[in-house]
Protein backbone atom coordinates (compact mmCIF):
# COMPACT_ATOMS: atom_id res chain seq x y z
CA UNK A 1 0.00 0.00 0.00
CA UNK A 2 2.59 2.50 0.99
CA UNK A 3 4.51 1.64 -2.11
CA UNK A 4 2.06 3.44 -4.34
CA UNK A 5 3.00 6.77 -2.88
CA UNK A 6 5.86 7.23 -5.26
CA UNK A 7 6.27 10.73 -6.45
CA UNK A 8 3.92 12.97 -4.61
CA UNK A 9 1.63 14.24 -7.37
CA UNK A 10 -1.80 15.38 -6.23
CA UNK A 11 -3.83 12.66 -7.98
CA UNK A 12 -2.25 9.81 -6.02
CA UNK A 13 -4.83 7.61 -4.33
CA UNK A 14 -3.47 6.33 -1.08
CA UNK A 15 -6.58 4.45 0.14
CA UNK A 16 -6.89 0.71 0.54
CA UNK A 17 -8.96 -0.96 -2.14
CA UNK A 18 -11.87 -2.34 -0.10
CA UNK A 19 -14.02 -3.62 -2.93
CA UNK A 20 -12.87 -7.29 -2.76
CA UNK A 21 -13.33 -7.23 0.99
CA UNK A 22 -16.89 -6.00 0.59
CA UNK A 23 -17.55 -8.74 -1.92
CA UNK A 24 -16.35 -11.41 0.46
CA UNK A 25 -18.31 -9.91 3.34
CA UNK A 26 -21.48 -9.72 1.28
CA UNK A 27 -21.18 -13.35 0.29
CA UNK A 28 -20.61 -14.39 3.89
CA UNK A 29 -23.57 -12.31 4.97
CA UNK A 30 -25.81 -13.87 2.37
CA UNK A 31 -24.70 -17.37 3.37
CA UNK A 32 -25.48 -16.73 7.01
CA UNK A 33 -28.80 -15.12 6.22
CA UNK A 34 -29.81 -18.17 4.22
CA UNK A 35 -28.83 -20.59 6.94
CA UNK A 36 -30.77 -18.93 9.73
CA UNK A 37 -34.35 -19.00 8.49
CA UNK A 38 -33.83 -22.37 6.85
CA UNK A 39 -37.28 -23.68 7.43
CA UNK A 40 -37.44 -26.85 9.38
CA UNK A 41 -38.70 -29.94 7.67
CA UNK A 42 -40.12 -33.03 9.21
CA UNK A 43 -42.11 -36.18 8.63
CA UNK A 44 -45.36 -36.20 10.55
CA UNK A 45 -46.21 -39.43 12.29
CA UNK A 46 -49.31 -40.38 14.20
CA UNK A 47 -48.52 -41.85 17.56
CA UNK A 48 -50.26 -44.96 18.81
CA UNK A 49 -53.25 -44.61 21.05
CA UNK A 50 -51.99 -44.70 24.64
CA UNK A 51 -55.13 -46.49 25.83
CA UNK A 52 -55.82 -49.14 23.24
CA UNK A 53 -59.34 -50.44 23.15
CA UNK A 54 -59.48 -53.65 25.15
CA UNK A 55 -60.69 -55.68 22.21
CA UNK A 56 -59.84 -55.02 18.62
CA UNK A 57 -62.46 -57.17 17.00
CA UNK A 58 -61.84 -56.48 13.37
CA UNK A 59 -58.33 -55.37 12.76
CA UNK A 60 -58.53 -53.95 9.32
CA UNK A 61 -57.39 -56.86 7.20
CA UNK A 62 -55.93 -54.86 4.38
CA UNK A 63 -53.83 -52.43 6.33
CA UNK A 64 -50.29 -52.04 5.14
CA UNK A 65 -47.52 -52.57 7.61
CA UNK A 66 -44.06 -51.61 6.52
CA UNK A 67 -41.40 -53.26 8.59
CA UNK A 68 -37.87 -52.07 8.89
CA UNK A 69 -35.63 -54.95 9.82
CA UNK A 70 -32.06 -54.71 11.01
CA UNK A 71 -29.30 -54.61 8.41
CA UNK A 72 -31.20 -52.30 6.08
CA UNK A 73 -33.87 -54.88 5.15
CA UNK A 74 -37.52 -54.09 4.58
CA UNK A 75 -40.78 -55.99 4.46
CA UNK A 76 -44.34 -55.05 3.55
CA UNK A 77 -46.93 -57.10 5.38
CA UNK A 78 -44.23 -59.64 6.31
CA UNK A 79 -43.18 -60.05 2.72
CA UNK A 80 -39.53 -59.08 2.23
CA UNK A 81 -38.89 -56.34 -0.29
CA UNK A 82 -35.59 -55.38 -1.80
CA UNK A 83 -34.45 -51.95 -0.79
CA UNK A 84 -34.23 -50.86 -4.41
CA UNK A 85 -37.77 -52.05 -5.12
CA UNK A 86 -39.40 -50.58 -2.06
CA UNK A 87 -40.50 -47.36 -3.69
CA UNK A 88 -42.04 -49.03 -6.73
CA UNK A 89 -43.70 -51.64 -4.57
CA UNK A 90 -45.27 -48.96 -2.39
CA UNK A 91 -46.33 -47.01 -5.41
CA UNK A 92 -48.12 -49.98 -6.96
CA UNK A 93 -49.87 -50.55 -3.66
CA UNK A 94 -50.90 -46.97 -2.98
CA UNK A 95 -51.72 -45.68 -6.43
CA UNK A 96 -55.08 -47.45 -6.68
CA UNK A 97 -55.74 -47.39 -2.96
CA UNK A 98 -58.04 -44.79 -1.46
CA UNK A 99 -56.72 -45.00 2.10
CA UNK A 100 -53.24 -43.58 2.12
CA UNK A 101 -52.36 -44.94 5.53
CA UNK A 102 -49.28 -46.90 6.39
CA UNK A 103 -48.05 -48.36 9.62
CA UNK A 104 -44.34 -48.29 10.07
CA UNK A 105 -42.95 -50.85 12.41
CA UNK A 106 -39.25 -50.52 12.94
CA UNK A 107 -37.34 -53.31 14.51
CA UNK A 108 -35.77 -52.12 17.74
CA UNK A 109 -32.36 -53.07 16.39
CA UNK A 110 -32.70 -51.12 13.16
CA UNK A 111 -31.07 -47.75 12.63
CA UNK A 112 -33.20 -44.62 12.90
CA UNK A 113 -31.88 -43.33 9.60
CA UNK A 114 -33.26 -46.36 7.78
CA UNK A 115 -36.66 -45.93 9.38
CA UNK A 116 -36.76 -42.33 8.24
CA UNK A 117 -35.65 -43.41 4.80
CA UNK A 118 -38.53 -45.87 4.61
CA UNK A 119 -41.05 -43.26 5.77
CA UNK A 120 -39.63 -40.90 3.22
CA UNK A 121 -40.15 -43.45 0.45
CA UNK A 122 -43.68 -44.05 1.65
CA UNK A 123 -44.50 -40.35 1.52
CA UNK A 124 -43.05 -40.18 -1.95
CA UNK A 125 -45.26 -43.08 -2.99
CA UNK A 126 -48.36 -41.17 -2.00
CA UNK A 127 -48.89 -42.13 1.63
CA UNK A 128 -50.61 -39.36 3.55
CA UNK A 129 -50.71 -40.74 7.08
CA UNK A 130 -47.87 -42.56 8.74
CA UNK A 131 -48.67 -44.42 11.90
CA UNK A 132 -45.93 -45.52 14.23
CA UNK A 133 -46.53 -49.02 15.50
CA UNK A 134 -45.82 -49.39 19.20
CA UNK A 135 -42.94 -51.55 20.30
Amino acid sequence: MGMSAGGGVSSLNNEINVTPMIDVLLVLLIIFMMIIPMSRKAIDTQLPDPNPQPAQPNVNPDQIVLEILPDDKYAINKEPVEKANLFNRLKTIYDPRPEKIIFVKGDTMSVYENVIWAMDQARGAGVKVIGVAPK
Binding site: D44, T45, M109, N114, V115
Partner: peptide
Protein backbone atom coordinates in the same frame (compact mmCIF):
# COMPACT_ATOMS: atom_id res chain seq x y z
CA UNK B 1 -30.83 -47.35 17.33
CA UNK B 2 -34.53 -47.15 16.52
CA UNK B 3 -35.31 -48.56 19.95
CA UNK B 4 -34.31 -45.23 21.51
CA UNK B 5 -36.62 -43.31 19.22
CA UNK B 6 -39.58 -45.62 19.57
CA UNK B 7 -39.14 -45.52 23.35
CA UNK B 8 -39.34 -41.75 23.24
CA UNK B 9 -42.38 -41.86 20.96
CA UNK B 10 -44.05 -44.24 23.39
CA UNK B 11 -43.46 -41.82 26.23
CA UNK B 12 -44.80 -38.95 24.17
CA UNK B 13 -47.92 -40.84 23.22
CA UNK B 14 -48.59 -41.61 26.87
CA UNK B 15 -48.15 -37.95 27.74
CA UNK B 16 -50.74 -36.60 25.36
CA UNK B 17 -48.79 -35.94 22.18
CA UNK B 18 -50.75 -36.96 19.11
CA UNK B 19 -48.41 -36.18 16.25
CA UNK B 20 -44.67 -36.54 16.30
CA UNK B 21 -42.93 -34.60 13.58
CA UNK B 22 -39.61 -36.29 13.02
CA UNK B 23 -37.19 -33.59 12.00
Amino acid sequence: QYLKVVDALGILSKSGVRVAALI
